[in-house]
């Protein structure tokens, strides 16, 4: 199944990646090839096969409801491209 340029644009938008015209073209071709290769999975009958999300049968891994020290705000806020007055800053969000 061929991936169209429109598919590439839709997916790029979902992933929030801006692509140049050149990249769009390149990805359309490359992803088509990869997806065609991946399509070989369709050869297999998996009608009665359970999917594996976790390779080990671990269940109910939990922690007690205990408060642990939080991290020093300055140590993380100093990593931010933009921050002020204790907040991370981002371009204005319009609802």
């Amino acid at each position: 199944m061929a991936i169209t340029r429109k598919d590439v644009e839709y997916v790029a938008r979902l992933a929030r990646i801006q692509l140049s015209e050149e990249e769009k073209e390149q990805f359309t071709a490359q992803l088509t090839r990869i997806v065609e290769y991946v399509a070989k999975l369709k050869e297999l009958d998996t009608e009665n096969v359970e999917p594996t999300a976790h390779v080990l049968p671990l269940r109910n891994v939990m922690r007690p409801d205990e408060v642990r020290p939080s991290i020093d705000r300055d140590s993380v806020l100093k990593l931010a491209p933009k921050a002020a007055e204790g907040f991370y800053k981002v371009p204005q969000v319009i609802e």
Binding site: V35, T46, V49, P51, T52, A53
Partner: peptide, 15 residues
């Protein structure tokens, strides 16, 4: 379903 779920099922077979 066609890709992700399918791959998870084949993962079961590989395991």
């Amino acid at each position: 379903d066609a890709y992700y779920l399918k791959a998870q099922k084949v993962r079961t077979l590989l395991k």
